[in-house]
Design a protein around this nucleic acid. Structure first.
Lengths: 140, 140, 140, 140
DNA sequence: GTGGTCTAGACCACA
DNA sequence: GTGGTCTAGACCACA
């Protein structure tokens, strides 16, 4: 698994982890039943304190995305795909709505906003890393 | 002036004030030379801690949007319109870029995103209050 | 507010706090809008680390029982009463069901179990502290 | 022997094993002198870590419920029946007392609690598997 | 003052 | 080995 954590870009680290895991599940980069790296592993891998990872995992468990098995680690929960699709849609819809609301209130018209969005959508994708992917454990 | 402050929607209150003032200027709802309500007035009007208003005003002064006039409170600065237009463009562009980046990373395609934006742009404007307007203090 | 925390009786401290707050709300000892003692206050009062209180508060917020107001403290949320009644019913029903299941499986018959329960219900109440109550801020 | 282990229902697996063995003895489903399956057998049968079974067996030995017989595995100890009846009574009484205490503290009255218990006692038994029974190893 | 986040590190139960 | 809990303590944004 590849995470792209940016310490203090405003979004708390634990929340970045939560979102990225959810997005990875929603995008089928992570699948139900799949085992996650241990808390300690993840922590070193992300160069982050284990407690921060624990906090993210707690929230993910709360949200039905992962299950912990005592002494054995965490796995992606059964209904995780549907859950994460819902969560993704809601997380993004809310953020989009917020920004559009702010833009409209600022006096921009819908057309003006749409033009900016379209332009960004043309230039942004090229810059982005090729989406989070699991280790190719295609056959192991 | 009418502000629409939402405590704990994630955006700090002082920042909401800063943005709304800038947008009002960019949108000509506030004009250069116009007097702003006093800190105390604003604070009670917004049901907010006076320190919070002070903080917002400090930032607005720093950004060249308002000027304090000896003993008479704050007025909208001379070059405020151009400044606020720039600020508005940048504030919104940044937020839009951020949300689009997150959406693209989550696995959504540009088309999918665009569809959501278009849909929201059709439904949102109707719901919004009729843009922030100054009290018709046509000349006071 | 009076809490009765027993460090390591098996139930995690943060969970004891969560339950007791919920029960207090369900029992109207705490009411919507009421301000909770600050995290630091509660921590010293309960002789517990502030982080432990924070954890409890996070869960309570997640469960819609409290709301945090930045820089101002935490208050009991609007719909908290209904929420906590539901939570209480569920928490207790689950525990009761679990213990009855275990008893039935152990070979005890329903009558035998019922007798024990009735006996305990006669002797226990007298031993218990007089329910958690808020500081009598009846009129302050 | 049939066990019904539920990983992560809160009760540690080793403890579930201990309790179920004790209950089986108390209920005469297991009798003194009867041989228990080997650790390995039990572990695979329960889909559980062998160490977990070992731990359970150690505790059962400590509690005088089983004895290891040189080279022949474990058998149910001589005084096991009386021991397990006592243990069962105590295990269940403790759990019942705990849950009743929590319920009373939460503000429920004894009558309210009793009603819930009675209702559960009517619906639960039907749902339960037909009590733990030994494989009819009538004599092996 | 308030809550929110994070680190460092310990200890524990469990498998 | 695994996750879960807790402490101690720092630093920050916010009001």
């Amino acid at each position: 698994m590849f995470f792209d954590i940016e310490p203090s870009n405003g979004v708390p680290i634990y929340d970045q982890i939560v979102r990225q895991v959810k997005y990875a599940v929603a995008d089928r980069s992570l699948r139900s039943g799949q085992r996650l790296p241990s808390v300690r592993e993840l922590a070193t891998q992300l160069a982050v304190n284990p407690n921060t990872v624990v906090r993210a995992m707690n929230q993910l468990r709360n949200d039905g995305v992962v299950e912990s098995q005592r002494g054995r680690g965490m796995i992606v929960a059964a209904g995780a795909l549907e859950q994460c699709r819902r969560d993704r849609r809601e997380l993004l819809a809310t953020r989009i709505e917020d920004v559009l609301t702010e833009a409209l209130r600022s006096g921009w018209g819908p057309d003006e906003i749409l033009r900016v969005v379209e332009r960004k959508l043309k230039t942004l994708p090229a810059k982005l890393p090729p989406a989070i992917t699991p280790e190719t454990e295609s056959d192991s």
